[in-house]
Design a binder for these strands. Sequence first.
DNA 1: TCAATTATTGACCAGTCGGTCAAATACATA
DNA 2: TATGTATTTGACCGACTGGTCAATAATTGA
Lengths: 202, 202
Amino acid sequence: MARPRAFDKDAVIAVIKNVFWEKGFEGTSYTDLIAASGLHKGSLYQAFGDKRALYLRALADYDAMEVEAGVSLLINPDNGNAVERIEALLEAVITAVRNHKDRRGCFLCNAAIDQAPVDPGTEEIVTLGLGRMHHAIEMALSEVDPSRQHKNRIPSRSAPAAKNTASQIMACYFGMRVMAKAGVPLSMLEQARDAIIIQLKG
Amino acid sequence: MARPRAFDKDAVIAVIKNVFWEKGFEGTSYTDLIAASGLHKGSLYQAFGDKRALYLRALADYDAMEVEAGVSLLINPDNGNAVERIEALLEAVITAVRNHKDRRGCFLCNAAIDQAPVDPGTEEIVTLGLGRMHHAIEMALSEVDPSRQHKNRIPSRSAPAAKNTASQIMACYFGMRVMAKAGVPLSMLEQARDAIIIQLKG
DNA sequence: TCAATTATTGACCAGTCGGTCAAATACATA
DNA sequence: TATGTATTTGACCGACTGGTCAATAATTGA
């Protein structure tokens, strides 16, 4: 019927996500978005709406991709026992800093600090994302796999204890991301990871 | 010799600190700073330099006031035993949200995310502040007060274990601040606090 | 009282911000 | 091939950005 769009919307969001992820909402200008996407300002407006709409789509995309990856890492028994999966999650934070000099951190965490307090749309995506993360950790913690119980000595937890510990691990995880962004020595992140794992195994 | 300054520099920094604290670096404009301080743009420049210099002074002031308050809370035995002092620190995060609807969070934490990765001056203040916090927690954890040891049953920790646990508690603390900003239910923050305290007492 | 020195003031700057729009363009259908 | 429709384009907008500066005012020591 009409002229078709010359670009793939999802691919553009994926690119733009990286800009907001790295620079935050206020720190990102249309000039940045144009440079990254190769599109014209008018095209961005026509396809997605204003800057805030673009930001929310980018954040939702992060949630669907990266947060979801974390959730499946935590839930899938193929990745080892519950403690090993949680350790892998924490290890990923350290690896990102060590190998890739990644200072972008976690977009959800960045958004929590820079936009959630002033934008309800951001707040909603962030709290839902944190909620799913929390639930995944809780699931992992309460998991009792009878066939592995002996071999790995993971103490099983009552439901309320699992909830408490899940909240604690969430806090540790996001705290580690903040510390990584802050630029603390890697050793401090490793210490935090070790302490958590020792606690879980003990 | 010459015309004296009509305002108190420290008082102005204290006011401006609140603006940056709430809105971040990019989110704060000179218009905001002028409205908060009542000064003219030229006066701010003459007295402090550019926006970044102002931000760094505000952050340094936060470090000297608020972070230092946290450090003394952790170190001073008048505030109870080590676990009680750490609990008070975590409780303060929850209270700030519950009673004052405070969404500013921790300025050091906000700065870690929004400016530390792109500004070395910010990174330095933040890492030094985190370092002092870490040291204070470590001191509290390794503290063995013989007269109280029996009464309160705080397990004493070896130096390396105290370092690990200190890093873990730091992460939990900053994570809780992120979660508070994100707008998670208060119960989740209380769960995290409970889990940490149970861990320390166990 | 006068000179030297510093602070205050508000007008001013170029550049950039997010956002709009009408014209040109390209496609699918008829 | 003609027509209707959606996309692309780049010029354009007013508002605001961080920052400057020359004129004016206030103070102290001489």
